[in-house]
Design a protein around this nucleic acid. Sequence first.
DNA 1: GCCAACGTTGGC
DNA 2: GCCAACGTTGGC
Length: 134
Amino acid sequence: MAYWLVKSDPDTYSWENLLKDKKTDWDGVRNYQARNNLKLMEVGDNVLVYESQSTRFVAGIAEVTKHAFQDTTTDDERWLAVELKAIKSLKNPVTLETIKNTPALKDIALIKQSRLSVMPLKEEEYNTIIDLSK
DNA sequence: GCCAACGTTGGC
DNA sequence: GCCAACGTTGGC
């Protein structure tokens, strides 16, 4: 069981959209490193959904329901997508500012590599963010 | 809306 | 294979 964080611009696809859709193909990733992470996702893995740009917080918890497959939004065989299912919203969204101010989270890619859109989380980091949302 | 950081492209 | 130019992302 692994832990991940995925990022989305809420103007394009927000956590609210995923809640409404119940599940969605997480496609449109056009970055090799992010693609490689998608490929490593297994069914049942836990995924935190972060909204960039306007809101800048971790909004909810999702779960991988389909292992990586060819991204149907392009014919280019290099790109992959996974299917995610919404599990629940965080009671209190965890903002980027809070994450930055939490020493246990100082090394996560969200901060270190701000442009990466799919990244692994350590179990402790995942749990820390969950704790912060309570 | 601005701009720094980063990734990608293409000429050489 | 290098690197300048360009486009995109995302924090502020």
